[in-house]
Amino acid sequence: MGCFSSKKTKYTPGYEEPTVLASETSFSVSEVEALYELFKKLSRSIIDDGLIHKEEFQFALFRNRNKKNLFVDRIFDLFDIKRNGVVDFGEFVRSLSIFHPDAPVSEKIAFAFKLYDLRQTGFIERDELKEMVVALLHESDLILSEDYVETIVDKTYTDADTKGDGRIDQEEWKEFVLKNPSLIKNMTLPYLKDITLAFPSFVLNSEVPDSE
C-alpha cells in the first residue's frame, strides 16, 4: 500500500475553476472563492453531498426545511440551470451573479421575467399574476377582498400590457420595469459586494493569487 499525502483539495461535484467563473460573471476570483466557502456550508447542511437541494435552500432562508414558498421554489428552479433538481457550484455562482450590484440591469430584468412567468410560456399571464398576489397575501396573512385583488391586477395590466393582448411579454416587461425600477429591487443583493469579508476563510484555501 502506498502512502498518499496529497494536498489536493477535494472539490464538490460541479466545481468549476474560480478564474473561469470570475471571467463569466460579475464576481472577482476572490469573491468566487469566498462563495465556495458559503456553497460548501449550504450544500452540506442537510444532505452531505456537495450539492444544494431545495430543502437546504429553504432551510437557509427560513430555518425550516418544510416551509413552502412559491417564490423560493421559483428562484431555486431558476438557479437549477441544468434542471436536475439540485444546484451545483457553477450554477450557484452564475445565478447569484445576477443579484450582484454590478450585474447588468438587463440580466436582472430578464431573470425577474422568468421568475414571474410561472408556467414558462414566455408571457406573464393574468392568472399567473393573480396566483402570485394570492400566494403573497396568504403567506403574509394579509387579507384583501377578491374584488380588490382583481382591481389591482386589472390596473397592473392596464399599465403594463401596452399591446392589450391580455398578457405581458418580455418587451412590455422591460418597458414597465424601466418606468418602475423598484420592481427589480429584489434582484440586487448589496451583501454580495462584501462576500469576501463575510467568508474570510477562503483566503486560507485560495490557490489563485488575486490580481485585482
Binding site: L38, K41, L42, S45, F57, A60, L61, F62, N69, L70, F71, V72, I75, L96, F99, Y116, L129, K130, M132, V133, A135, L136, L137, E139, S140, I152, V153, K155, T156, D159, A160, N180, S182, L183, K185, N186, L189, Y191, I195, A198
Partner: peptide, 24 residues
C-alpha cells in the same frame, strides 16, 4: 395610489436571499 401587483408580490420574504449569507 400607484400600487401595482408586482410591488405586492415583491414583499414576499421568499425574495430575500440574504438568509443564505447568515451564519447558521
Amino acid at each position: 395610489g400607484n400600487l401595482n401587483a408586482f410591488d405586492i408580490i415583491s414583499l414576499s420574504p421568499g425574495f430575500d436571499l440574504s438568509g443564505l449569507f447568515e451564519e447558521k
